[in-house]
Amino acid sequence: MSTPDVKSVLAFPYPVPEVGAEDYWQAANDERLVMQKCDACAKLRFTPAPICTHCGDDQFTWAELSGKGKIITWTVITHPIHPAAVAKVPYVVVVVELDEQPGLRMVSNLIDAEVGEDGSAPTITFYAAVSVAFEPHPSGQKLPMFRLV
């Protein structure tokens, strides 16, 4: 395991796709949000998985999503525990449920929301509508993030 000089680490870690997840991250670079759709039961699943978590079938097609969803929960992080967080706090981590399927949720950042240094975030509400935006990580990998609609 690498042990870089802490002071030199100015970005959050970037994703290295695991086997089977390459298409998800490549699609993000192409500014498309895709998830696996089961060929047998048509259910979407996330995070990428080798078999359908609903019916057990292993055949699937990558399906493009609308990128629209709603906020299920969030936290405003004010206490930096990573070197790169020092310049980023306060920042918002959200759990978004995507419009395509009840329970289809992902972790992301809510960007461009009004957030106070004390963690107050008056514009963020439960079930607020959000839309995906692709933001580049310093590594070059684009990450799906969300904005309030």
Binding site: M1, S2, T3, P4, V6, V9, F12, P13, Y14, P15, V16, P17, E18, A21, T47, T73, W74, T75, I77, I81, H82, P83, A84, A85, K88, Y91, V93, V95, M106, V107, S108, N109, H137, S139, Q141, L143, M145
Partner: peptide
């Protein structure tokens, strides 16, 4: 405290790039 590895893979790659690292941060959600 967060590990300072340059990259992550697997389940962490859907959390750490967003600055979601510690159990406390996850429990907050």
């Amino acid at each position: 405290q967060a590990p300072t590895d340059e990259s992550v893979t697997g389940v962490k790659s859907y959390m750490s790039p967003y600055g979601l690292f510690s159990p406390a941060q996850m429990v907050a959600l």
